[in-house]
């Protein structure tokens, strides 16, 4: 029997979320504000129900079933790598929060390239320096603004060029 996959759970989640949205729209919003979200959310409830029913019907069939064992292994690898990538984005956010955008980006790239890419120090140095200069040019010529982070708030006046 074919497994019911993540797609079905996602559809169920949408259905549940939209049910809450419809109830909120009807109970709390004035009529003019409630029409649009109520209609859209109701449509989504219907569509997600249809999708869940389709998924269950296909799940009952054994014809043309995928090689689940093989698919699961590949999926696990994808999910692992994808989760790892998201974790690295969180590291970037933490670096930005602590050091600001410019220094934070450099810290992130240094950490990532050292641990994931395992490149040589020359390569890491060139990439970090290049990114620092690139961000600096962005700031100077496009007037882009970003936060200076916790460390920037302390050191911004002593070394303004760093942040």
């Amino acid at each position: 029997m074919k497994k019911i996959g993540a797609s079905t759970y996602f559809s169920i989640l949408i259905g549940v979320g939209m049910s809450i949205a419809v109830i909120d729209a009807i109970k709390n919003m004035p009529i003019l504000a409630a029409i649009y979200p109520a209609v859209v959310a109701s449509m989504l409830i219907v569509l997600s129900t249809i999708q869940v029913i389709n998924d269950f019907r296909k799940g009952q069939s054994t014809e043309g079933a995928l090689d689940i064992e093989k698919a699961d292994t590949t999926l696990k690898v994808r999910y692992y790598r994808g989760s790892r990538a998201f974790m690295w984005i969180m590291v970037l956010y933490l670096a930005i929060f602590l050091f600001g955008f410019k220094v934070g980006a450099v810290v992130f790239l240094f950490a990532y390239l050292s641990l994931e890419d395992k490149g040589g120090w020359v390569k890491i140095g060139l990439v970090c320096a290049g990114m620092f200069l690139f961000l600096d040019c962005f700031r100077r010529f496009l007037g882009v603004w970003w936060s200076t982070g916790l460390m920037g708030n302390i050191l911004d006046e002593s070394v303004p060029w760093l942040f």
Partner: peptide, 10 residues
């Protein structure tokens, strides 16, 4: 990829 992600976040 990490360089492009930095640009995207910015």
């Amino acid at each position: 990829a990490p360089m492009i992600i930095v640009i995207i976040v910015m």
